[in-house]
Each structure stands twice: as structure tokens, then as C-alpha cells.
Design a protein around this nucleic acid. Sequence first.
DNA 1: CAAAAATACTTAGCAAGCTAACTAAATTAC
DNA 2: GTAATTTAGTTAGCTTGCTAAGTATTTTTG
Lengths: 167, 167
Amino acid sequence: MTDITNLTEMKAMLKVPLGNQIGRVHRLWRSAITAAVQSLDMTESRWTAMLHLKMLGEGATQQALAQELGIEMPSLTRTLGQLVELNMLERRPHPTDKRAHCLYFTPAGQQTLTKLIECTMQIRQALYRDLTPAAVQQLMQTLDLMERNARTLLATTSAATAVEDSL
Amino acid sequence: MTDITNLTEMKAMLKVPLGNQIGRVHRLWRSAITAAVQSLDMTESRWTAMLHLKMLGEGATQQALAQELGIEMPSLTRTLGQLVELNMLERRPHPTDKRAHCLYFTPAGQQTLTKLIECTMQIRQALYRDLTPAAVQQLMQTLDLMERNARTLLATTSAATAVEDSL
DNA sequence: CAAAAATACTTAGCAAGCTAACTAAATTAC
DNA sequence: GTAATTTAGTTAGCTTGCTAAGTATTTTTG
């Protein structure tokens, strides 16, 4: 019924730089958190790794954590090196696989983690101001769909030729 | 009426790493476009600058373009240097303000721009697959609100102490 | 079971955002 | 009208993502 409207709206949308907006929000988000946790010697990549290791559970391998974070191994290796250097984490040998390392919090890491959790929840709360749970839910769903679309597109390698209809 | 539900949902949301999801989508978006336009010697920052200059209109200053892009001047300076080097853009002196430069496309830049517009619209179309215009609209609105919340938070400088309620 | 392929991790170097600190011109203030 | 401040742009160097290429195991395969 609203097909024509949809088509018109869709065409208009294709000109809007949504990707930039997403990037901007991400940078602002990062800034807000970095400002809040810098007294803990934490940067975005560091606290992110800490929190996700907590979610995954101690003993996870670097590979598993990279997967969880959605980043590549080299990016994570660097950050973990810093966290080990800061005495937040330990790399212990994997019980059966000599290639792999398992990740554990140090006592100092545990303490920092507690503060991080509190801190990041406060920030999220501020960022969600005036947003309904439904809106946040919707945001996550839409982003998830876009993420899957992007992965599909990239998997098709020659992304440029994915769509050629005139619309 | 759904206050209790809302509160429960809200608490749950505060634990979800939405910031990471946003970052992930941004990186995937960037990858998809980079893959599509690399034959034009374009990277994300370059094509972004080109498209936004087009939107702003030729003759814009670097300051205006940085504002439009939502990035800082030094980030833009580097990218513009590359685009001038690649013979896509020209920096011309501002008619009245000797500090400022005005930006213009070269003929080669114009040609590249045309291809870029087509290319990025195709990619956006692929990324919006299975999304309704309403969902995209909602996404932009929610992101916009979060962007404003983040700016407010950052403007309060001591972001850490912004909220202290127990919740 | 030895050779080939895959996997966990690392190192090196690029991309594009940022802040801090600088110059030169314009504006404001006294 | 000069002095102080602001603004446009740059340069230098940090962060954190990436890919490419290398090592050491593990797994697969012929």
C-alpha cells in the first residue's frame, strides 16, 4: 500500500551519510568513556578487552576473545600486551594446546574490573537519556541486520558489483 | 503502566556492549566501501571528504567541511593533502580571508566524484537490505539523540561524575 | 607416519581518528 | 591604534583498527 512512498523514501535514504553518523557516535562514545576511566590507566581498547573477558569468563583464549570483540588478532595482541604490562591480566599456557594462551585477571585486574563495570554502566545510562528501552532495542536489532548485510557483502568479495538494478 | 518492565529492561540494557556493536558496524561499513572504491585510489576518509564537499558545495572552507564531517581540522588537513596530491581537489585562497582556503574539484575530481556517488549508493542499498525506511529513519533518530547525549556528557567535562544514582 | 594445511599468536607497518602546540591573519578590547 | 584574543590552517605524535608476513604447534591427508 505504501510502496510508492517507500520507494521514494528509500531513494532519499540512499543519499544520507548514515555511515558517517555511525562513526561519529562511535567516536563520541569512545571519548566519553575514555574521559571517565583514564584515571584507571584505561583506554577504550583496554577496558573493552577487560569487560569482554569478564563476559566470556576467565580462561578464554585470545582467539575466543578476539571473536567476541569482533576484532582481529593483531589488534588484540597489542592491547593484551599493554594489560599484561599494567599487571591487569596474565597469559597462562593452555593445558592441552601449546600454541594457545589462556587469559586471567590479576588481583589488581579484578579490582579495576569492578570499577570499570560501574563506570561504564553510568556512562551508558547517560547516553541512553531520553531513549526508551524499545528504541535501544530497535537500534540494536537494526545495527545487527546491517552488520549481517555488511558481512554478506564483504563475503561476496567483489562488493562493487553486488547490486546493479536501476532502482 | 509498564514502568517496572521499563526499569528492568533498562537495567539489562546497561550491560549490553552497544558501543562495541556500533564500532563494529562502522568498521564493516568502512571495509565494504573501501573494497568497492579502491580502484579509484579512494579510502574512507578521502571519499567521505569528496562527497561532503559536494553536499556543502564547492568553495567551502576546510573549517566548514570539518564541521560538516564532524571531525577535527588536523584529520581533515591530512586527507585534503592527499586529495590535492591525487589531483582531485584544489585549495584556492579565500577572497577576503587570507587565513582560509576554499576547496574546489579538479576536472579529474569531478569525474571521480560521479563514480563515487553511484558506488556508495549501491553499497548503502546493499547494507539496507531487509530494512524498512522506517527502521532506517528510526536508527538515525536514535543515533542522533545518542550523539547529543554524548556531546552534553563531554561538555560537562568531568563525565565520570555525571550520574551517581544507584539504579 | 611424513608432508601439507590450518591455527594461535606475534611483529611490522598502514589508515584515520584524536590532542597539543605552532604560525599567520582577523577580530575584539581598551 | 596597538595589544590581546580568536580563528584557519598546519605539523607532530598517540590510539586502535587493519593487512601481510613470520613462527610454532596442531590437524589433516595421502
